[in-house]
Design a protein around this nucleic acid. Structure first.
Lengths: 213, 213
DNA sequence: CAATGTGAATTTGTTCACAGCC
DNA sequence: GGCTGTGAACAAATTCACATTG
């Protein structure tokens, strides 16, 4: 067990291993080797072992890893051995879709508040089954406190993103998932991860255009 | 101008620079330095210059870069000096949101077909303004040919993703954007990029849990 | 003896620092 | 003088290869 700085790529892969282990567990597979995991998620076996080695020794030499145990360990490391409450700002198409996205709930992520300053949207019910109603941004602080929210999601247009980020920060959130295609600035103790859908498409068109392997 | 293998991170950043340049251009800013760009998107100035250097010499020493020109160059490099047609499989919440997502169109990406095998969805109109109607997967080949489609988007649940990927490949697509939280296997000449929303959240919870800077 | 865990080797990516040029 | 472009230095991440162990 080392305690060096851990590459972000390692964390990303850990999340992928974690879900792969969940799949294996559902199929009632009990033991898995680094080679199996590697094949399953498309990385090298050495990579799998190195990634895990940052956090401890989870396997048995000559045997492999116990699926259930390793699944628990990875979830613990990722901090998802519990559930997390999130709020979402921006009740447009993307925001609405994210509210309904079942995968989030399956992994323990719950959207407990939706905010938008568009008067035509306030008061509307987004997800009937979850009793989610769009509220004005002023009510954000209240919800964050009451529902113990740790994560904010930005799903507004680019030009409003920075302003929303500022509000999220002012309300004490330390983790932001940003879907606006723009770089948002936050203090050092706040983490932002941006998911920029167009960027991913442009990586594809780059490769379609420059047809090297 | 070198012709080494280009890091994926460079391409990703190029896409980000490109959009930042668009912003500057809208503000009628004519010249920009690597320091300006770096500040604007949150990387180092040397990084900006190195990234651009993979593709040519676009600046003027002592001056900087011409915004309009560099914007055009980056778009050309990324292959977005033209528009691209895409099809989408999976008319659920996420699929619907992606169809309505205006940012795609703004960057020249057009969804020209939506497919789903769920009988309750077939025939429904997704985007009235675009005249998009959900069709069964069998009609995919037809649309791909007729509309000159190059990119396929997977927005179905994890368990159906591989099957859908196989169909996209069989229909000749070489680029796939996958939103299913699972690794899909495709032949070497097909590019897949996966956008896994939960993975990004788990990177955040990792950091929230291990509170090292 | 099969598969982990890990130091060492290698590859890849980033930053530095400065020569070159407008 | 100021900012680009780039080789060289550095840092980070990945792969290799093998000693270790149940």
């Amino acid at each position: 067990m080392k305690s060096l700085r851990i590459p972000e790529a390692t964390i990303t892969r850990l999340s992928i291993y974690s879900r792969y282990l969940e799949q294996l567990d559902k199929k009632e597979i009990e033991t898995v080797s680094s080679v199996d995991i590697a094949k399953g998620v498309g990385v090298s076996p050495a990579q799998v072992r190195k990634d895990l080695a940052y956090f401890g020794e989870f396997g048995t030499r000559g045997v492999g890893y116990n699926v259930k145990d390793l699944m628990r360990y990875t979830k613990r490391i990722l901090g998802i051995n519990r559930s997390w409450n999130m709020i979402l700002v921006g009740a447009g198409n993307l925001g609405t879709a994210l509210c309904m996205y079942r995968e989030f709930r399956a992994r323990g992520f719950h959207i407990v508040g939706v905010f938008d300053n568009d008067l035509s949207k306030i008061g509307k019910t987004i997800d009937r089954s979850m009793d989610l109603e769009v509220k004005p941004l002023e009510e954000m602080g209240e919800v964050i406190k009451k529902e113990n929210v740790d994560i904010g999601i930005i799903a507004v247009p680019a030009k409003a993103a920075q302003e929303v980020a500022d509000i999220l920060v002012k309300n004490g959130l330390k983790a932001i998932l940003n879907f606006a295609p723009v770089t948002v600035n936050v203090p050092d103790d706040v983490r932002v991860r941006t998911i920029d859908l167009s960027v991913k498409l442009e990586v594809l068109t780059f490769h379609l255009t420059f047809n090297e392997l």
